[in-house]
Design a protein around this nucleic acid. Structure first.
Length: 506
RNA sequence: GUCCUGUUAGCUCAGCUGGUAGAGCACGUCACUUUUAAUGAUGUGGCCGAUGGUUCGAAUCCAUCACAGGACACCA
């Protein structure tokens, strides 16, 4: 494993350190400040007459990123989580012999060291640490990538995220923002009186969305379980049980393709709010974005790639109207199945003629409207056929009290007034079963336990899901979901699939 | 799933219409006590993604495969 010449060389150096009585993996750290604090606290050194204060003693630690040995003195840049600091290491300030035999020969870029010293400003004007003692904490036996170009190969960056984080420190910012978004989301809903809950990740029936699940097996019970594709049906059971505002932030799993906006496991928040409707959700969503932008100190005119997204310009438009107004689809066809099919064909698009009107309207939306929705837009009033869990509109039973929020051409949230009529829900599930029989293998599963729960009465409720990964992409100006996931899903490197392995065993 | 592009030293990359494999960084040795990707000298380092084929000869041409990136398709 460690046959590489450079690694062998470094292992030898670690051995030399051991022979000199130095532990190359010491855990006796005495660090008493972070680099950021050191730089802030000592910013006044610049003003002092001799640009130094030998009475201020600090112990800092970090990984060596740059090493400039200039004979009897060296400049070293070390980095900790908070920042980068230059050290001035001179032979005569260290213990006798240490500089020549230990420091110059056996300590190198990539190693993690601890340094004692005082602040001073160099001739070039950089606040630095004047080292009077130095020890190694951790020997790195693999060399770091090239110091200037770093590591640019996306594959290596995803597979070895730790190297990416070492070499491309701006990547840390993305994940710090991600952490902030999740933390702020939690606080926002807690402050509104929502209760955070945890529902099962292993479901007997994969429900709450239309997607293919991952299957696993419970040995003791000898039953298959599905990794959840959505927590929706469990959260609504809690509303039946009397909780009036609940949310869950966690992973969903969908056994589908991977691309710039899809990872097989992804994070979402779902929240359910009794005695509210989807109209209330539109309001709380606007408030939520305002809250995020305030606390993340983001400009409301947010750049996203080539786009500028105006978060002061929330729009709201029913789906059917969006087809004509935004999508440019002629108004006389949007409610006619045959005309839609003809229109799609005319535009050279694949059409499944088995689709019902609602599904076809959804197709039109996906083709002609979605990518044009740049500023945040609530598309409302979805056809009932493509909304199996949403409440029908009281004025038009063909549409539901539902919206999806689109930003920068992507769906960010999905929300509706919940269907709480158990008989209607049963009928919708049956409709989905029929669709499944017609070959729609992503149609919703029948969940009679859930229907039974509804039969005890679920207060009128509105619920919403927000894709956290896509939201973070938007807020960090990243264009691949892999750049907002610390460890995105990757194909195995040996290239052997299960099928091939099974064949070999035979 | 389809198409396009890529895969050469630890890293970043050259390598023409086939003719003994190159640079910078890193590393080794030497010089250098205020550098900023430090500098100067010198040296080590390669299964050219894998497997086949064409050829006297393949990093280079062809085929298949693997992985990645991008686009499209599928999918929230």
């Amino acid at each position: 494993m460690f046959s590489n010449k450079f690694i062998q060389q470094r292992i030898e150096k670690a051995d030399i350190l051991r022979e000199a009585g130095i532990n190359p993996y010491s855990n006796q750290s005495k660090r008493n400040t972070t680099i950021e604090k050191f730089l802030n606290v000592n910013a006044d050194i610049e003003q002092k007459e001799d640009k130094r204060d030998a009475t201020r003693l600090y112990i800092v630690s970090g990984r060596i990123k740059f090493l400039r040995i200039m004979g009897k003195a060296s400049f070293v840049k070390i980095e900790d989580e908070s920042g980068m600091l230059q050290l001035y290491v001179a032979r005569d300030n260290l213990a006798e012999g240490f500089y020549n035999t230990i420091f110059k020969k056996n300590i190198e870029v990539g190693d993690i060291i601890e340094v004692h010293g005082y602040p001073f400003v160099t001739g070039q004007g950089e606040l630095s640490l004047h080292a009077d003692d130095l020890k190694i904490l951790t020997k790195a036996i693999s060399p770091l990538p090239e110091k200037f170009h770093g590591i640019t190969d996306k594959e290596v960056r995803y597979r070895k995220r730790y190297l990416d984080l070492i070499m491309n420190t701006e990547v840390r910012k993305t994940f710090q923002t991600r952490s902030r978004v999740i933390s702020l989301t939690r606080r926002f809903f807690e402050d509104k009186g929502f209760l955070e809950v945890e529902t099962p990740m292993m479901h007997p029936i994969a429900g709450g969305a239309n997607a293919k699940p991952f299957v696993t097996h419970h040995n003791a019970l000898d039953v298959d379980r599905y990794l959840r594709i959505a927590p929706e049906l469990y959260l609504k059971r809690l509303i039946v049980g009397g909780f009036e505002a609940v949310f869950e932030i966690n992973r969903n799993f969908r056994n589908e393709g991977m691309d710039a906006t899809h990872n097989p496991e992804f994070t979402s928040i779902e929240f359910y709010w009794a005695y509210k409707t989807y109209k209330d959700l539109i309001e709380i969503t606007k408030e939520y974005f305002q809250y995020l932008f305030e606390h993340l100190k983001l400009p409301t005119l947010l750049p996203y790639g080539e786009l500028k997204v105006n978060f002061n310009n929330f729009q709201e438009i029913p789906l059917i109207e969006s087809l004509t107004i935004i999508g440019g689809v002629p108004a006389d066809i949007v409610n006619n199945k045959a005309k839609i099919i003809a229109y799609l064909k005319e535009k050279n698009l694949d059409v499944n003629e088995k689709m019902n009107l609602g599904q076809l309207q959804g197709e039109l939306f996906d083709e002609f409207v979605e990518e044009k929705l740049i500023d945040p837009t609530f598309i409302t009033e979805y056809p009932v056929e493509i909304s199996p869990l949403a409440r029908r509109s009281d004025t038009n039973p063909e549409i539901t009290e539902r919206f999806e929020l689109f930003i920068a051409g992507r769906e960010i949230a999905n929300a509706f007034s919940e269907l709480n009529d158990p008989l209607d829900q049963l009928e919708r599930f049956e409709g989905q079963m029929a669709a499944k029989d017609c070959g729609d293998d992503e149609a919703h599963e029948m969940d009679s336990d859930f229907v039974e729960a509804l039969s005890y009465g679920m207060a009128p409720t509105a619920g919403q899901g927000i894709g956290i990964d896509r939201l973070v992409m938007l807020l960090t100006n990243e264009h691949s979901i892999r750049d907002v996931l610390l460890f995105p899903a990757m194909k195995p490197l040996n290239g052997e699939t299960c099928e091939e392995a099974a064949q070999e065993e035979e």
